[in-house]
């Protein structure tokens, strides 16, 4: 339904006085498909370009090359009603709940805005429907509609964020780390709410997260991003059962296991993510990889495909799969 093809996004970065500027490739030749009603988890460390990819798909920033198609049409060519339909159909939920709501506006008004502008309802209709939306996300409109964002907890604000996204009657919601800033106890509630809403509305989610545990919980498909490129993708069941890229393997192994009797696994991920201004040659992951050989330093790995369109960009994917 929402499809990005060979998307690339470059940013020009000023290095400082007299040092000119450099090009940062935040997203490098990424293709992504989100089908109706499914949840795609986009997993990666911070700085991997996953939020940039999300914002391209939302139409908030323009890609350097590649195209985004919505229901088969390049959305750059959408005009008039079709453009407005796209705007309403593809919505977002953000990580920083306090920054994503206008601090001077009562939260009820933030929910009303898409009803007025995307849906073009009358003010009276919009007010009634905004109250219903707040109720659907578990907030009593009598209490919360007239509050300011800072008077709400993070979890309550994220509920408002969901109500605002739902107000446009979307088909796809790009959720950029929607629960990362929340307390663990609140996370489960918001995730449950998102799953309920998905079932009721047949929504598709692009769920951007750095947390593999959450991806395992909610995703139908998983895409793993590293330094702007997709290194592994496949059905969630396949990816978690047989990680086929050393990076995914390292992430699954480094996820904490809530069992004090089990020893921590050995470190599989060495060092930090390199600067995207100077990505390593060959395979970008080789400086941190436990499987790296000489070829990894020189040749970019081809994409290998296994069962169920499970893909991995690694020279030694078979070895990784073998454990």
């Amino acid at each position: 339904m929402l499809e990005g093809t060979q998307l690339t996004k470059d940013f020009r970065v000023r290095l400082g006085l007299f040092r000119g500027s450099a090009t940062l490739r935040a997203v490098d030749d990424v293709s992504i498909t989100i089908d109706a009603g499914e949840t795609v988890a986009l997993v990666g460390e911070s700085g991997s370009g996953k939020s940039t990819l999300g914002r391209i798909l939302l139409g908030l920033i323009l890609q350097t090359s590649g195209a985004v198609h919505y229901r088969g049409t390049d959305f750059a060519r959408l005009q008039g009603d079709a453009a407005r339909q796209f705007r309403a159909d593809v919505q977002a939920v953000f990580q920083d709940t306090s920054a994503s709501l206008n601090p001077r506006r009562r939260v009820g008004e933030s929910v009303i805005a898409p009803l007025l502008f995307n849906r073009r309802l009358s003010a009276a209709h919009a007010r009634i429907e905004s109250a219903q939306l707040l109720e659907r996300v578990g907030l009593d409109p009598k209490i919360f509609a007239s509050r300011f964002p800072h008077q709400l907890s993070g979890g309550q604000r994220q509920r408002v964020g969901l109500a605002r996204a739902l107000a446009s009657q979307p088909r796809v919601i790009v959720a950029d780390e929607p629960v990362s800033a929340l307390d663990v106890s609140v996370r489960a509630q918001i995730l449950k709410l998102m799953q309920d809403l998905q079932a009721q509305e047949k929504l598709a989610y692009l769920f951007i997260t750095h947390d593999l545990g959450i991806a395992r919980l909610i995703a139908n498909r998983v895409m793993v991003m590293y330094l702007g490129a997709i290194v592994e993708e496949g059905n969630a069941a396949d990816v978690f059962a047989r990680p086929s890229h050393p990076y995914t393997l390292a992430l699954t192994l480094s996820a904490p296991i809530p069992d004090p009797t089990r020893a921590r696994p050995p470190r599989h991920l060495i060092g930090d993510i390199p600067s995207p201004l100077a990505p390593p040659p060959g395979c970008r992951f080789h400086p941190r990889c436990a499987f790296a050989q000489a070829i990894c330093k020189t040749d970019a790995p081809p994409v290998r495909e296994f069962e169920n369109a499970h893909r991995s960009a690694c020279h030694f994917a078979e070895q990784v799969r073998g454990g």
Binding site: R55, L58, L60, R84, R87, A88, Q91, A92, F94, D96, A99, S100, L101, N102, P103, S110, A113, P114, F117, N118, R119, R164, A165, A167, S168
Partner: peptide
């Protein structure tokens, strides 16, 4: 972010 959200709201 709230200006981005406003764009998504159709303003």
């Amino acid at each position: 972010t709230f200006v981005e959200a406003a764009r998504l709201s159709g303003m």
